[in-house]
Write a protein that binds this DNA or RNA. Structure first.
Lengths: 346, 346
DNA sequence: GTGAAAGCGCTAACAC
DNA sequence: GTGTTAGCGCTTTCAC
């Protein structure tokens, strides 16, 4: 039994193929009775429109391409990020009858732009989602733009770009985390910054400063360490911070990996977390729940962001409206076991 | 400037579109000189065949669907598995001019089978890759089979199914790990088994027994703990094992998460790893390198397996041959810092 | 070795 | 409201 086509449905329902097309595409101008007959025929024949034929005739592929930095180079749980984005994007795509193509990319590579162009030209997706940290690489945004394909950026932290983007309130929630630590009684709260190429990072530092100010705490330059997002750099920064004459009683790292590095160093130095030192991270990667003690951190609404990005994209394809502006989704603090009031001695 | 079509290329090269088609599809019966002219025209016009038109005419979607258990339910670094599989599958697809669709699935859900059928009927991929642990769910294999779509299973550990599958030498390499621990001088080597629903697990236990036998060590029932693949279960099992009158000096866990649990417990009990206790895991997830000490483990060639699966699938589509048998790719031991000779006192 | 013609299964544009 | 017609850009079949 070969697949039913629109002609089969039309024949069975006793209408023209155009009417079937109208029903399938939810177009107006079909009498209810007719619509029902057609729907019955569709169900009876288990009719599924042939996507290739639709694409050929309508010049719409019903494909969305999710482009992100290839994680296979790094040994970090960043794969969790990607899975969550994929999840959100996938759901939004399915709901709208679209399929999702994934396209990991190494933006450092020479031919990254050519690679992306080729991908888009071959696949011809109706829209592209450019995920962080790639979304901050202007050259790539320009590359997508050059193909004329609508696209959306996902970037934690508000972004200043003329295209539409989905982001999160990174600065605000970082301030909130800082205030939370202060509310526990901490007075010397350190911050470990990450690689500035990841834009969200600078927002988090700003948020940290905001939080200090909100809590009436002074900003102290020596309490800011510099990392590069990897776990080792968190260790190095933590060692320096903890060797200070007046060491911090709480360390807030710009991501979970670096926070895990802090925990590791504390462990080595015999400093108990959270009793003697509170540690907070950011991103809520799987690692955060797996290390001991489980990490207090900030949960990025990655799946929702990807979903929102896809929805906006598809909406703009439907309405043929230009996308612009920004959609900001709130991140949330997840309090776990790595934070507590400072020791009374401090 | 609109996209070039096959007609444009044919006109520029001064041949018929059929000849262009022959060149693009690498068919025979084209004179070298003609072929060159056509290739030049293709390059000049930056011609990319319209995939929708090809699909419509040839009934081949050039799409492969990668189906795997949805990881977003679990808090485990299993996302790394999936990323690695995606990577291998993606590469193989691109090399062959195919695109990859991802389809995470919750096999426990009532409508899992219907969902899968729908996906295949709508998307019409030329082939499906069913990844572990889904590949062991017969109902899903049957579901794919019912659609008539060629498919391949990826399953760590040899599998007994009539369809083709790609697997790894799980049992052998587990034996090797056991022999390695024995070669360090360990005489009491414990094993923490995982959830038996994950088929690879039983193979690993068998391999452990093989390794003991190979090393002239007796099998001792009390040295086998039972876990469920999650980190907590590793802790529970480790606590029991370490409370034994004659505790093991080495613990080999059937996956990295449970091994991480063992390390955690040792840490709590003040037992130094690896000086007082050697710990080995399996899978080489990101966590393995991130915890302290870095975990000695077994690296699953996940990317290669997925790549091999896709290659076989595409090959069989080309040749229209039935797939059968098994392709076994070797896993490898990664010695890191969690294993060492036993303490002399033991 | 090369080409002409038919058609894959839809949607777009327009007629009724 | 509904139907007719003409493609979309390829591959297939078969003729030469």
């Amino acid at each position: 039994m070969t697949k039913a086509t629109i002609d089969d449905v039309a024949a069975l329902a006793g209408v023209s193929i155009k009417t079937v097309s109208r029903v399938v595409n939810q177009e107006p101008n079909v009498r209810d009775a007719t619509r029902e007959r057609v729907e019955k025929a569709i169900a009876e024949l288990n009719y599924q429109p042939n996507q290739a034929a639709r694409t050929l005739a309508s010049h719409q592929s019903r494909l969305i391409s999710l482009v992100y930095e290839d994680p296979t180079l790094y040994v970090t749980p960043s794969s969790g990020f990607i899975i969550r984005m994929q999840e959100g994007a996938l759901q939004a795509c399915h709901k709208a009858g679209y399929a999702l193509l994934i396209h990991p990319l190494r933006h450092q590579e020479k031919n990254a732009r050519k690679n992306l162009t080729r991908h888009i030209e071959i696949v011809r997706p109706d829209g592209v989602v450019l995920a962080a940290p790639l979304s901050n690489v202007e050259a790539l945004a320009k590359t997508v733009e050059a193909t004329g394909t609508p696209f959306v950026r996902i970037s934690p932290g508000t972004s200043r770009c003329k295209q539409f983007s989905v982001s999160t309130n990174d600065r605000e929630v970082s301030a909130e985390m800082t205030r939370y630590l202060a509310s526990l009684g901490h007075r010397r709260i350190a911050f470990i910054a990450g690689d500035p190429s990841h834009k969200a990072v600078s927002h988090r530092l700003l948020g940290y400063k905001d939080g200090l100010a909100d809590s009436g705490l002074p900003f102290d330059e020596e309490l800011v360490g510099q990392g590069n997002n990897l776990i080792d750099s968190g260790e190095v920064a933590a060692e320096k911070l903890l060797a200070l004459p007046r060491p911090p009683t709480a360390i807030f790292a710009a991501n979970d990996d670096m926070a895990a590095g802090v925990v590791r160093v504390a462990d080595r130095l015999g400093i108990k977390v959270p009793d003697q030192l509170s540690v907070a991270g950011c991103d809520d990667v799987a690692l955060a729940q797996l290390i001991y003690p489980a990490l207090t951190t900030i949960n990025q609404p990655l799946a929702s962001m990807a979903g929102a990005a896809v929805e906006s994209l598809i909406e703009s394809i439907r309405t043929k409206d230009e996308l612009s502006g920004e959609d900001i989704l709130p991140a949330e603090i997840r309090v776990r076991d790595s934070t507590a009031p400072p020791p009374p001695t401090a």
